[in-house]
């Protein structure tokens, strides 16, 4: 089976820092791949490279087996790739609904829509639905996101990504600010999304979380993939060993 999304030999330096160093990555239809690694290992940079937010020094990205140029976020969006960024990338002065539909507003019916008017009521209804599916911690759909708690903002960003992704969704530490219940909801949502055939890439520092939902686990260290594990038969020791470099696992990488 060809992966939906595959990266081969991606490199990118920031000054003297090699954020990505010949890094590989791949994710298939209907699977959850966890991308783990120490702080600064290059996980977020990898996500940016595969979502059109980063100019690469070298390397190729393949989508459905074909080489694609992701030079702009909209290139990724067009392919059905959505991202929950680590910094969430919400507009603090806009409300949750406006954020969720930003750039994809539902047009008002008829001539009004042609003039750029929007169907705010319909957008609010759909947004409410999405937030409820994630456990409904987002209470007001009409107050600015900037006034909300970190967890609420995270839910908004996740709801937005899940609502629009139809091939691949990247979640860069989606549960970092969430409470226990909300974390559960996100993990359940991840499984639901996967079951619809969408590929999910989960970045997380929580090993129990990773081992629960991931079908495969890819480990990054110093800007490259150093190991790939099957989610089911992996131990915590193996993961930590690969992340810190204590365990030489290069041979196992796909």
């Amino acid at each position: 089976m060809t992966p939906i999304l595959e990266a081969r030999g991606l490199s990118r330096s920031f000054g003297s820092v090699r954020a990505l160093d010949e890094a590989d990555f791949d994710v298939e239809e209907g699977e959850v791949v966890a991308l783990i690694g120490d702080n600064g290992a290059g996980k977020s940079t990898m996500v940016k490279a595969m979502s059109g937010n980063l100019a690469l020094d070298s390397g190729t990205v393949l989508f459905d087996g074909r080489q694609v140029a992701l030079t702009h976020p909209s290139d990724a969006t067009r392919l059905g790739i959505e991202v929950v960024y680590q910094d969430l990338a919400l507009a603090p002065h806009l409300d949750p609904t406006q954020n969720m539909f930003l750039g994809r507003e539902i047009a008002a019916p008829g001539l009004l829509g042609w003039f750029g008017f929007m169907n705010n009521k319909e957008m609010r209804r759909k947004a409410r639905q999405s937030f409820n599916d994630l456990g409904g911690t987002v209470r007001s759909l009409t107050s600015p996101v900037g006034n909300m708690s970190g967890g609420q903002r995270q839910q908004i960003a996740i709801a937005r990504a899940i609502a629009w992704a139809n091939r691949v969704v990247f979640l860069d530490e989606p549960t970092a600010a969430l409470g226990v219940v909300q974390t559960r909801n996100v993990l359940e949502a991840i499984k639901r999304v996967r079951d619809t055939g969408i590929a999910v890439v989960l970045i997380s520092h929580s090993m129990p979380e990773v081992m629960e939902v991931a079908d495969r686990i890819q480990v990054m260290r110093l800007g490259r993939r150093v190991a790939t594990f099957k989610g089911a038969d992996t131990t915590m020791e193996q993961l930590v060993g690969a992340m810190t470099g204590a365990l030489e696992t290069e041979g196992q990488s796909s």
Binding site: P73, T77, Y85, A91
Partner: peptide
């Protein structure tokens, strides 16, 4: 206040990077 043009105007002032990332 009522059109997409206006909403994008607010979005840019609020978080230009976020606006870019959603493809505006």
């Amino acid at each position: 206040h009522k059109t997409k043009f206006g909403r994008y105007t607010y979005a840019i002032g609020s978080n230009e990077e976020a606006a870019r990332r959603v493809g505006i």
